[in-house]
Amino acid sequence: MAKTTKAVSKEKKFSVRKLKEQYTAFKTDTQFANDRKRWSSNFKGFIIGLLKFLLIVGVSYVILGPVLGIISSSFFSNTDNYNPMVYMIPQDPTLERYSKAAQYLDYWKTVSNSLIYSVTLMLIQVFICSMVGYGFARYKFPLKNLLFACVVIMIVIPTHTIMLPLYMTFANFDVLGIISLIKGAPINILSTPIPVYIMTALGCGLRSGLYIYIFNQFFRGLPKEIEEAAFVDGAGTWYTYFRIMLVNAMPSVITVAIFSMVWQYNDTFYGKLFLISDDLIISKKVASLTANISNAEKIYDPSIQQLYLDAGIVLVMIPIVIIYVALQKYFIEGVERSGIVG
């Protein structure tokens, strides 16, 4: 026993010396030094990559978590809801929430209405904002800088500052006294979507200032030669803008179109302010879904009411998510290329 330990210690001593020799050999060996450097940098890269991966996964989870939560709980049946052991994955999935939510939302009608509403507004907005942006980008006229400052003011000033006057304006709507002349009194066009259409057509719709800004930046970036060539070839001002510049500005047109449509679809501010019917704006209608279902179906447990709301929310989200997934590529690259960044 003792012998063996001695032998081991001897061996150890021996090996230590050998190790030292090896160490000095390694130290002088440039080949190995290079390898070591590469390994350590690879390892560092791996660790940093892992940290980045974890961070991105974590942040993505924070964003996706509630969406997944809503989707999963929209399938919960009553027993799942009351069972504390059920988390995320329902044991007894049901589609009843969806059928009820779709019924009370009048889903197909409302969703098609609100899609038509937002697509119409989007078309008007793209057309008007690109026109204004083009005007600012390519023409020189007196007070141009001041007027462009007004566009920036439009972006900066929150819409709620002017909500009361807007309400008043459309409650007693009149254009230069013409309507009073015909009908005898200004008319009330609230509770119809007309105010939103008018405002959008006059370049003051939802975030129009931002879109004008985007278009202006983009048109300024396009080479002037295109226009000159068109002009030399005999194209008129209007033709140049509509058939040549607008076609060239496709990336920003797509960006603005998608933004405009999605934000219009989601917007409840104008809908609430102008008392537009819920049947036209699904994201407004879904807010009253809980109350409707609980009254009509006599469901008094708020946690069950919430399940119906979740199903309704999923139904509202579906069209936007489809649009988003289909056009995702344009969305982000469009923002990058369309010159939000001056």
Partner: peptide, 15 residues
């Protein structure tokens, strides 16, 4: 130029 920005100008002044 003014014609191009006219819709917006009216809207801005009006609203």
């Amino acid at each position: 130029g003014y014609l191009f920005i006219m819709p917006w100008l009216i809207g801005f002044l009006w609203f």
